[in-house]
């Protein structure tokens, strides 16, 4: 498969997941802002911006700034609108390799953006979740399980690790964790599963454990890491007797085993730092995938020369 197309599919996977997860995170945060009377809105909004990697914003921050920068504003790189636009742009460039159904579902989502922006925030977030679920469902039902699929899943999984890590950071940083954890679980669609798994609401530690380590719940960090590793090993397509030749696979595998084998308390205690480390791993893995499969050596700018 063409490197450029593989890269597009990888990023379509990432952007769609980013739109989905950003909607989930915002939904939680805005709810916390409403429900917690004691909260310092400016500080917690500022914190959210920094967790989401939005830099260079000056001036007062409130829930409207957050909505603008992370949801509505196409020009803000961290926003849902920009993620959807980027996914659609990628799909347009890879259109001949996508099924008409996938293309149409992504295109329809992009075309619905202007009207989605006029919805009430919770409705917009629900719309984003539904739409991305639809694209994922169509992808799941119609994409051949070829390289393209693996890159799509790989991008989606790496992004999911990254975003769940951010979600965990925001929960850990919240002033009132009593409110934050249940809402975080709800944001992940994990609330019911968690309650069933732990037979009643146990507490912060268990919630963190569930979102980090649960092997059965698909949005947990470990699940997403495993998914990414599987996609990578399918791409590798040749068994290795020992170790891992692929840098991305090595990075993700190490991150996963560290999470799984370290005492949970250690991680929970330093959650924001640990999560930042995880995000850096995701970035490094993404780069390793690019270096191996997307061969960035192209895009020369040519200069003409003549001699007398």
């Amino acid at each position: 498969m063409l490197s450029r197309i593989a890269e597009s599919l990888f990023w379509i996977g990432r952007y769609l997941e980013r739109a989905d997860d950003t909607a989930r995170i915002l939904d939680v945060q805005l709810q916390v802002l409403v429900e917690d009377p004691a909260i310092d809105e400016a500080a917690s909004c500022q914190q959210l911006l920094s967790v989401m990697g939005v830099e260079g914003h000056t001036g007062a921050v409130n829930r409207w700034t957050i909505l603008d920068l992370l949801a509505h504003n196409v020009d803000s790189p961290g926003s849902i609108a920009s993620a959807i636009t980027a996914a659609r742009e990628g799909a347009r460039g890879a259109r001949e390799t996508l099924s008409t159904d996938i293309w149409a579902s992504i295109n329809t989502m992009w075309r619905g953006l202007p009207s989605a922006r006029t919805k009430r925030p919770p409705d917009m977030f629900a719309w984003v979740r539904n739409r991305t679920a639809m694209v994922n469902g169509i992808a799941d039902g119609t994409m051949p399980r070829d390289e393209g699929w693996n890159f799509f899943v790989l991008g989606r999984s790496i992004e999911r690790v990254d975003m769940t890590a951010r979600l965990l950071s925001t929960a850990a940083l919240a002033s009132d964790t009593q409110v934050a954890w249940p809402t975080t679980l709800r944001a992940c669609g994990a609330y019911e599963a968690f309650i069933r798994a732990y037979r009643g609401l146990e507490g912060d530690r268990q919630a963190a454990e569930f979102l980090l380590l649960d092997r059965w719940f698909p949005r947990s960090v470990v699940s997403a890491l495993m998914e990414a590793e599987r996609a990578l090993s399918r791409l590798e397509a040749r068994g290795q007797r020992s170790g891992f030749g692929d840098e991305a696979q090595r990075l993700l595998g190490r991150a996963r085993t560290e999470l799984e084998y370290r005492p949970l308390a250690e991680i929970v205690e330093a959650m924001p730092i640990e999560m930042e480390r995880l995000q850096r791993t995701c970035a490094a893995a993404s780069e390793a995938v690019g270096a191996r499969y997307f061969s960035h050596s192209d895009t020369h700018a040519w200069t003409g020369g003549v001699s007398l």
Binding site: W302, T303, G304, G305, V306, S307
Partner: peptide, 18 residues
Amino acid sequence: CPPLRGIYSTPGASELFV
């Protein structure tokens, strides 16, 4: 009929010698 004509990819300046 230029003796040498072509394109090159460089981030910086280039100088011709003859």
